[in-house]
């Protein structure tokens, strides 16, 4: 399972991509990632962010889960990510940035 996180927007508006892949992660971390993805439940999430006017300089995250040839992508404004999704985002950022 691979999780790709594309961050855009923000004050700098510099697009950056972070990934976490169970193939290259330690077993324990791989399990952690699977749990976080399951909890985030992206299958029941709208693909595009609900427009929220007047939120200057906030990040947007595009989260893509690749798993057994299936792929699921959603985009969310950072301040409207539900807690479980936010935990997944934080985890991938932490792992990818070392």
């Amino acid at each position: 399972m691979r999780v790709r996180l594309e961050r855009s927007g923000g004050f700098a508006n510099i697009r950056r991509t972070f990934t976490a892949d169970t193939k290259t992660l330690a077993t324990v971390q791989g399990e952690e990632l699977r749990h976080l993805v399951e909890a985030a439940d992206l299958a029941h999430f709208p693909e595009e962010p609900t427009p929220r006017p007047g939120r200057p300089d906030r990040f947007y995250y595009r989260v893509t889960i690749e798993h057994e040839r299936a792929e699921r992508s959603i985009t969310v404004a950072e301040d409207s990510a539900p807690e479980a999704l936010q935990r997944l985002i934080d985890w991938v950022l932490r792992i990818a940035q070392g």
Binding site: G10, F11, A12, P56, D57, R58, F59, D90, R94
Partner: peptide
């Protein structure tokens, strides 16, 4: 947050 690359109002 941790290592947050941003500032906002």
């Amino acid at each position: 947050r941790v290592g947050y690359d941003n500032a906002f109002w």
